[in-house]
Write a protein that binds this DNA or RNA. Sequence first.
DNA 1: GGGCTGGATGTATACGTATACATCAAGGGC
DNA 2: GCCCTTGATGTATACGTATACATCCAGCCC
Lengths: 333, 333
Amino acid sequence: MDQRDVARIARVSSATVSRVLNGSTLVKPATAERVRRVIEQLRFIPNGSAAALRYGKSSSYGLIIPDITNPFFSEFIRSFQEILADRNRDVLMASLDHHASGMQESIRRMMVRQVNGIALLAAEIESGPIEALVHNRVPLVTMDRRLTGPGLSDIAIHNASGMNEALEHLHALGHRRIGYIGGASGLTISDHRQNAFIKAVKRVGLTVDPAFLREGNYRISGGEAAIQQILAMKTRPTALLTANDLTAIGVLRVLHKSGCPVPQAFSVVGFDDIELSDVIYPPLTTLRLARQELAQTFVTALEALATDPHAAGNQYTVRTRLVVRESTGPAPR
Amino acid sequence: MDQRDVARIARVSSATVSRVLNGSTLVKPATAERVRRVIEQLRFIPNGSAAALRYGKSSSYGLIIPDITNPFFSEFIRSFQEILADRNRDVLMASLDHHASGMQESIRRMMVRQVNGIALLAAEIESGPIEALVHNRVPLVTMDRRLTGPGLSDIAIHNASGMNEALEHLHALGHRRIGYIGGASGLTISDHRQNAFIKAVKRVGLTVDPAFLREGNYRISGGEAAIQQILAMKTRPTALLTANDLTAIGVLRVLHKSGCPVPQAFSVVGFDDIELSDVIYPPLTTLRLARQELAQTFVTALEALATDPHAAGNQYTVRTRLVVRESTGPAPR
DNA sequence: GGGCTGGATGTATACGTATACATCAAGGGC
DNA sequence: GCCCTTGATGTATACGTATACATCCAGCCC
């Protein structure tokens, strides 16, 4: 069944049916109503593939993330998908999950599907797939790569705002030895975050002990490993910032097992503010990165590039801010 | 750029290019190689919309879940997507997130996209959208609805296997008063699970105190509310089963706050075995529902229906089994 | 009343692919 | 040497839509 069947029954042409379906103002209200009734009655569903072929675009966007089971990303997906669904656009999602070849393949599949653009939240990024996107004029929006170009926008995470708040908070609580557990090194996003930490420490007049800078993996296991190393040190920090909340949860877990009360013996600050942060024990003081705002910015950036394929990319920014809960307290003497 | 451009440069017809792309055996190896080289060199990406239009199907599947931030579902998505990506198929995902109208719209969008079938893990289900699917011959596979038909398969969760193990475990530990915190009532899946619990209790020779049957919402908050009611009772159960792990986590959290040591004062058993279960404190004894196996069964069921659209649906089953960790122990005297 | 304007609708076509069917060459059997 | 088979390739077309362009008609101005 297609538009022509609808047209025949409604005694109009298929062009008119198409116009009704796309909300053209050119159709007389009475005619439109008649067509709509036939569509309803026949339960006609238009063929999106034909429309995409004709139109050259598929009214869908690709979304690539590193790990869907990380709550930060699943919460992001929820917002992203919701915003796009309101605009009647689909999301083609790909979660890499530490499969090396995943990204190349995912991008290819999305290009085959004629997505209007791709949101890339993965840190690791090769130049090959990006070239393919540029070559085929597919807009790309990345997170915290701080690189823009034709058809390529970026959304920077403004780590400094939250980090500064966090350090003022800890400094005011009397902490002088403050450590940081980062993400996997080599990723730009990890570097930006760690640099923001170092700057924020200096800003409140403290120094950074390199031994207090540890590496994690953005997962619980990384936080656990890092805090164990820290507990083994003779001189320890009294407070810790982490690259994300999962890392902080790993830290809390080991501290709990080791009989280190939080925040009495140790203050811990997370990053992201995933929903879980408010639910673990003790509720996590963390730097909130608003998912809803981030998702909205991605959509804005994508639509801007999709509308005008020759547009130069923009650099966007999303701020972070401190949310104080119960995992931070006065420094032990 | 299209197949004809490739064809011209490779000095073959577009039909041959199409055959090469689809791995037809009809092409001479030397010719295929030549065509492949041109494809590579031109970085040609085929147009999936055109293929879908011509072929009538889009080589993608729809996936509808109630809440992507529930780890059970995000872990399922990961497996589901991974299995389909290996078969070069895309996933169109929709998370309902308590939006009432979401399902109808999601299904419609998927039909417009010509999905080969839809996996529906949402509990609430109206007949309207299902009719639309049947009417358009779109295969549907549901979870634990125990209803099949033409183009409609179901995957039942075999609650009994795990529930029986759990009750034997608790009974052996000396527990005699055992409670259950279910999901939202009225959903078939909640009913099946609760009934399995009641049967399992009777099976070990105990009786079910109706006051020990509480209702949750499959989220942490539901577990919290239910355990608070239970703590307020004069005669309390000594052990609790829950409809999923998030509910159990809510229970653990309130017990911890209330100074009730687990498992000394209370034994708690979850359901699902999400990754978090092994990470919270104490690690959760739970009924494992293998996500990988569930996802694989969904794919099998969908492909079976997609291959033969006139096929009658099948009833599949996925078992559960007890994973003992540290949230269960001997009953208090 | 003739010509013009603009709104409403119809006609015709291109989008890129997969495949049925046609064609052609080579080889084998007699 | 001729016919048939088989393998390899080419030709032609339909899938359902959106839209440029054509058409038609009513109303209006002078």
